[in-house]
């Protein structure tokens, strides 16, 4: 299980909540079963529960990164699930019915995801529909579109390149984990080293005022959705190969508990208290 890393890339203080809960959960899991933290090397790559977590959580984390950027603009992208499904179906379709090389399929799938994002972005930024409403459309229609592409059947296919992409290992770690790690690293770097994070927050907080100081607000919002679509497309390709065997019972309850826990920490009221404490600490530090 992986905590969605939403918001954390944008602002340092806010990542405390999710990070703490992640550590708490890992500790709790370790307490319940000591094997949880054990890592071993099997067939030249690492394995163990923690690795499984990374392996399974990678696509979700990827989708969450895209979502984080969208949420930063005070939006939301409900359609990511559908975009994951569409792009998964598209890549499977291309693999089974064409002889295109893998990079071309990769590029085409990402392009499809970006077009989906563009559609959302246009509805939100240009037409001016609320994000939750605008992305609902693709969320509903998208499931149908994905089924239409895969013709209502689960496509089975064989492709070495796709297999490496979804299930392969590189330097003892799964390739999908590398992909996600590299994307996260790039985003953090961009947010830290450029003013993009500031612009996104500014547009999220007040789009009109941001436009008047010379930020291309609409373009920024549009691109946020395109980026989200792009992330969902990559996640879709990864999951197209490896369907997660999801042990349902406890998993869902824990997920619910975590969502709530993280949110309690992030609710305006608790956040205010935490902020005050942090400011107090900072003040002491300066003194």
């Amino acid at each position: 299980m992986k905590i969605p890393m939403n918001i954390m890339v944008l602002r340092d203080q806010k990542s405390i909540g999710p990070l703490l809960s992640l550590i708490l959960i890992i500790l709790a899991a370790a307490a319940m079963s000591p094997d949880f933290l054990r890592l071993s090397i099997v067939d030249g790559h690492l394995s163990g529960s923690l690795l499984d977590i990374l392996h399974r959580g990678a696509p979700t984390a990827l989708v969450a990164i895209g979502m984080a950027i969208v949420i930063g603009t005070k939006g939301i992208d409900l359609s990511v699930g559908s975009v994951v499904a569409i792009s998964g179906a598209v890549s499977a379709y291309l693999l089974t019915t064409t002889n295109l090389p893998f990079p071309a399929i990769l590029a085409l799938t990402i392009a499809v995801g970006m077009v989906c994002g563009l559609w959302n972005g246009i509805l939100v930024a240009i037409v001016g529909i609320q994000p939750i409403v605008a992305t609902l459309i693709l969320m509903v229609a998208g499931r149908g579109i994905a089924q239409m592409i895969s013709a209502g059947q689960i496509v089975t296919f064989q492709s070495n390149a796709m297999d490496i992409f979804g299930n392969g290992y590189f330097l003892a770690l799964p390739v999908r984990v590398w992909i996600v790690a590299i994307i996260i690293a790039c985003i953090i770097l961009v947010m830290r080293k450029t003013a993009l994070g500031l612009f996104i927050e500014s547009v999220g907080a007040n789009q009109q005022a941001s436009r008047l100081v010379g930020i291309e607000a609409k373009t920024l919002v549009l691109l946020a959705y395109v980026f989200s679509g792009c992330c969902a497309a990559i996640a879709g390709m990864i999951t197209a190969i490896y369907t997660i065997g999801w042990p349902p019972q406890y998993n869902l309850i824990v997920k619910a508990a975590i969502v709530l826990l993280v949110l309690l920490v992030q609710s305006p009221r608790t956040r205010l208290v935490i902020k005050k404490k942090i400011n107090a600490m900072r003040g002491n530090h300066h003194a």
Partner: peptide
């Protein structure tokens, strides 16, 4: 707690489905 309904009910969505599994798979 002034948390967005979207997120609270999302948690509810996971919770109820999980509870259902808890009773019967």
């Amino acid at each position: 707690f002034e948390i967005q309904p979207f997120i609270v009910t999302l948690a509810g969505m996971f919770l109820f489905r999980g509870l259902a599994y808890l009773i019967n798979v």
